[in-house]
Amino acid sequence: MTIHPLRPDAPAPRPAQERPDTAAAYDSTWAEQPVEQAPEGLDRLMGQGGKIYVVLAVVLLIWIGLVTVLFRTDRKIDRLERRLDRDIPKDE
């Protein structure tokens, strides 16, 4: 990104134009950026369709997290059951 500081030798802006010019200085910064290149790779895929894929990725990550909790809880219950079966012999 090119940064365009105000040149010290530039003529001082007229007072009447001071307000609009504060915005104009930033405008030029953006306007002089190189022409936007077509996004590549991941950016191109995720940018399609109003970035719906980004939402999909977020929801899928949450879902993976919930599934992990489901599996881990199952494993913990399995372990607890085995331990209790060992510790509390039940004669009936």
Partner: peptide, 17 residues
């Protein structure tokens, strides 16, 4: 019944998985 493995609730594990 035998003296082990009756604390846990019987679950059909294969069905569950």
């Amino acid at each position: 019944m035998s003296s082990s493995a009756h604390t846990a609730l019987p679950v059909r594990r294969r069905l569950y998985r």
